[in-house]
């Protein structure tokens, strides 16, 4: 397994990645129903969590950060396998692999497309959770936005990476969470604790530490995924 000759520099690679991302998003956009279904699932999950923890306002608020991130994880996991299964159904993966250029561009492209989809889900989950769980999201905005951005990126990076393996295995729908969730524990901890810290005004100054944890998580696993994707996707 050697690196294929890389034609062109970083800018060409970036354009390749954008092309893959655009193709994936276009396919999702035309199908439309899948993203909508994931969003509806996320809404349903929030509702169930609210019934499980409610109806006391303070209880709901205490559970808020955890519920938000669990909902994101549980609904996001439905997105990743699909991004490869669509390719496999149409025999598109082989074609994609025969194109010139490094395979990292394929990974980054799929990562970007999944990122857009998960951000769409979050755009619904966060305001809905703010209402249902009486969570003061607007007041925590600058710090919270950083936590959400970093947490989402790390989640989608590992999700896209592991789905490249699970989507081509038996029982892929069960295999992906089994592989992914134990790996996501540091991210979940950092995201939930960070979100809680910023919602409470970050009086203890804990938020910065959790942000650093998320940055480290993203750096380590983005680099690892870029390096290992060649082995995962190739023959």
């Amino acid at each position: 397994m050697t690196d294929r000759p890389v034609t062109g520099g970083l800018r060409v690679e970036a354009r390749r990645a954008m092309a893959v991302a655009w193709k994936d998003l276009l396919a999702e956009g035309r199908a439309r129903s899948n993203v909508l279904a994931v969003i509806l699932f996320a809404g349903t999950a929030l509702l169930l969590f609210a019934f499980a923890f409610g109806p006391d306002a303070q209880d709901l608020r205490d559970a808020g950060a955890g519920v938000i991130w669990l909902t994101i994880l549980l609904s996001g996991i439905l997105v990743f396998n699909r991004s490869y299964q669509l390719e496999l159904e149409g025999g598109g993966l082989e074609a994609l692999l025969t194109y010139p250029g490094s395979r990292r561009a394929i990974f980054v492209g799929k990562l970007l497309a999944n990122l857009v989809i998960v951000l769409l889900v979050e755009a619904v989950v966060l305001p809905l959770a703010a209402i249902l769980f009486h969570v003061p999201l607007l007041g925590a905005l600058p710090g919270l936005a950083v936590i959400v951005a970093l947490g989402t990126f790390g989640f989608v990076t590992l999700g896209t990476f592991y789905a490249a393996m699970s989507s081509r295995s038996r029982a892929s729908d069960v295999l992906l969470p089994l592989l992914l969730f134990p790996m996501l524990v540091p991210l979940l901890l950092a995201a939930v604790q960070g979100t809680t810290a910023f919602m409470e005004g970050d009086a203890m100054g804990d938020g910065g530490g959790w942000i650093r944890m998320l940055v480290a998580f993203n750096l380590i696993f983005f680099s690892a995924a870029l390096w290992a994707f060649e082995y995962v996707i190739g023959e």
Binding site: P186, L189, F217, F221, A225
Partner: peptide
């Protein structure tokens, strides 16, 4: 062959997570 490669990748990426899990649960 593919299963072996997948397993190798899971073994490596899993080991990379050890320091992160350790730090995060320590703070927890």
């Amino acid at each position: 062959d593919r299963g072996r490669k997948f397993a190798a990748v899971v073994g490596i990426v899993g080991a990379l997570n050890i320091p992160l899990i350790h730090m995060s649960v320590l703070w927890f």
